[in-house]
Design a protein around this nucleic acid. Sequence first.
DNA 1: TATTGTTATACTCTATAACTATA
DNA 2: TATAGTTATAGAGTATAACAATA
Lengths: 135, 135
Amino acid sequence: MPIGLDLARTAKTCARAFDDALAAAGGSAPVWQILISIKTRELGTQRALAAAVGIQGATLTHHLNAMESGGLVTRRRDPANRRVHVVELTEAGEELFHKLRGAAVTFDQRLRAGFSDGDAAELARLLGKLRDNVG
Amino acid sequence: MPIGLDLARTAKTCARAFDDALAAAGGSAPVWQILISIKTRELGTQRALAAAVGIQGATLTHHLNAMESGGLVTRRRDPANRRVHVVELTEAGEELFHKLRGAAVTFDQRLRAGFSDGDAAELARLLGKLRDNVG
DNA sequence: TATTGTTATACTCTATAACTATA
DNA sequence: TATAGTTATAGAGTATAACAATA
């Protein structure tokens, strides 16, 4: 069995289950990824944000437009460099972040069922090797 | 680090690299999956085919339309049960299958770099556990 | 009525190219 | 000129609902 096929099938199955979990909590995978990135690297440029999420700048704008319409984020120009648009979470954005985090934690517990610490570490090591091999 | 996030990032990185490899060989991920399923479970219904690939029947029809237009497959009614459309590879379809298989094999070798047999088996075991946990 | 597959339509995520605003 | 981001447009993959053909 090719490793890539096994990985793709597993990822597809897990991604769908995770998407369902996030949707039930009122979110989606890209929104969750963007919320995480905003929370963890506050004050970066949108380019950096897009790179962190693994998408193009225009794709990020697309999502941010929807998130801004949905009242999750605000965008304002940085006074120090007015080319930069600072993205910040609104209260609703913070709420959604916490809700999605809860869903993600619950999902991860489900995923980890029957995993020893050694298993988890071994999986992380092997996945890291795969990324190195294609990067 | 949540397992799901690690898995999703790895799968995204690998899937993009694999898509590029398939595209360079004239294919795409769903086409490759469908070709594999046709070759390995000849004579099934399209429903079974769709289930094997992990998509809906209408989505499969969408891809088969493109593949038929592209001269890769033919569809004809099964005389024994005329509701069933038997999907078969044309010569061009067979050629593409072999070409994509070559690309997939090459990609898998790249992915396996530095993997011992034990590593590969361990990865397969852990991925299987993940699928069990969400299935 | 139930099953097989198609058609029509639309949604989500993604991307590239051209553009605006700022430096 | 270079950089940050947006707008316009498009394409791939997926899905649901309604439909036609067959049993």
